[in-house]
Design a protein around this nucleic acid. Structure first.
Lengths: 206, 206
DNA sequence: GTCTATACTCTGATAGAC
DNA sequence: GTCTATCAGAGTATAGAC
């Protein structure tokens, strides 16, 4: 039975997970071309031919990682409820995105590396699903602004700012920690800071 | 005469520049390991051995690019004047950083890729110069806050937020443009948005 | 200073024994 | 399913002619 067909044995399931976990580590730090199967195989505790028994090529391992990544990444935005309280919904989105950056930094970096390199393997998804979702949510934000429930500001750039500020703590983790020094929890401090930032930015008084 | 010793002939100077320009392009999109000398040489219009006549190794080409990069990157922060008007100084810093992201996106990405990969070739500089400068400017910001001239907020995370928001437009350029669609100038819009964001965040009324 | 030729290593992928 | 052995190609770097 091919390892790509379901159902898989327990050992196959386990090995696939080991490989994808190792691949996530390597691809997210070295990019596609900089990653090597040797490194992935060693980290997964398998031989290189064995790795290639589970995935037919390097490309396929990478593709398996990217599949679903964008969905995971967009779920927090999707969850923003048009019927909810604007500031609660937006702060909830910021919170969920920051938690994602804290709990899945490798996924965050994988995404960042991919986009940084011009998104050769994600362009479609970015120009399709991502763009549509942002447009949809921008309409929601605009309506909230029209109703005077939050301050007026460019809704798309508001979303960009949430992405930028939360990703920064995952992607530039090394720099953040180097500057803060020991005895700091970057994500706790970021949570407090971003709460203040977006509260002031969106205060309807403006 | 070694090509690394000054003075260099006009042709040497020109070739070094061609190489560094090509290398910037390649290293900034593929990272150190993903970049190849073949690609750099071809883009520079030189043969590979000729490239290696000017730089003894791939490592040295990369090092030549990183040298000075951090300085360029920190200059806008350095220029923030403790004796100036707080909001003018901070907005000036945001402006300069955004201009840098717009005019030197490859340098921005090179820096981002390096940090993303754990800063293996910049750790020292980040833990040294970068950290010291941030600490120094954080004191300046704190003093402004103590004097009630800008609203109180964590000064170090304020600096992080400026980095995150300005870099985002360079590093995630592909994504930003894909979402905005044609007919938008990301950097013009970002300038307007960030002006509002930081004005509200730092409004002393808070 | 620049090229051709080449040494040597690494990398992705396959063959075939077990 | 996993391993050893191995291949072809790409990669960094050097030697030496001109």
């Amino acid at each position: 039975m091919s390892p790509n067909a379901r159902p898989r044995s327990r050992i196959q399931q386990r090995n696939r997970e080991l490989i994808l976990d190792a691949a996530l580590e390597v691809f997210s730090t070295h990019g596609f071309r900089g990653a090597t199967l040797d490194q992935i195989a060693e980290m997964a505790g398998l031989s290189k031919p064995n790795l290639l028994y589970y995935f037919p090529s390097k490309e396929e391992v990478h593709k398996a990682l990217l599949t679903g990544l964008l969905d995971t990444w967009l779920d927090p935005l999707r969850a923003m409820d048009p019927a909810g309280d604007p500031r609660v919904e937006i702060m909830g989105y910021v919170r969920r995105k920051l938690d994602l950056a804290r709990d899945f930094p490798r996924e965050s970096r994988l995404f960042a590396v991919e986009v940084l390199q011009g998104a050769p393997r994600m362009r479609e998804a970015i120009e399709g699903d991502l763009r549509r979702l942002v447009e949809e949510k921008a309409v929601v934000l605009s309506r909230w602004m029209d109703g005077g429930r939050i301050a007026r500001v460019d809704p798309v750039h508001l979303i960009f700012s949430i992405w930028a500020l939360t990703q920064h703590y995952a992607d530039f983790d090394v720099q953040v920690r180097a500057v803060l020094g020991p005895g700091h929890d970057p994500f706790v401090e970021a949570g407090r800071f971003l709460e203040i930032l977006f509260a002031r930015l969106l205060d309807p008084v403006h």
